[in-house]
């Protein structure tokens, strides 16, 4: 069956350098730096990445950061809480616009 997404393609991420080496190298070296222990631990960054992966709903990133979070020592509860953070922010972002709707409605109604 043909699909737009193929799990095998995740392993080929590095191949993007084939068409444009310079920018790819810069991106991957930056990427590596970002995820190192810093003011945030590598573990905390992995959970943030997992949450963002769910926000952008990227199957590659969800796959990669589910494994990475486990290998950074996170457990199921921590990972699911990270996804709830995504859901809360996404849901909240929609709901807070309800204020805009209310403003408009109040402007137009008696």
């Amino acid at each position: 069956m043909k699909t737009y997404y193929n799990p095998e393609d995740l392993k080929k991420f590095g191949n993007i350098a084939e068409f444009e080496k310079n920018l790819a190298n810069k991106f991957f070296s930056y990427y590596g730096e970002v995820f190192k222990d810093g003011a945030l631990t590598a573990r905390e960054k992995s959970l943030i990445a997992l949450a963002v992966a769910h926000a952008i709903q990227c199957p590659y990133c969800i796959d990669a950061y589910s494994v990475d979070a486990l290998e950074k020592g996170c457990d199921e509860a921590q990972m699911m809480e990270a996804v709830h953070v995504t859901a809360a922010i996404r849901g909240g972002a929609s709901l807070v616009h309800g204020v805009q709707m209310m403003n408009k409605v109040k402007e137009l109604t008696m």
Partner: peptide, 13 residues
């Protein structure tokens, strides 16, 4: 690890 994945960094854990 309780599964098919590698262990995390010893010091962080």
């Amino acid at each position: 690890p309780s599964g098919a994945f590698l262990p995390p960094s010893q010091s962080a854990l």
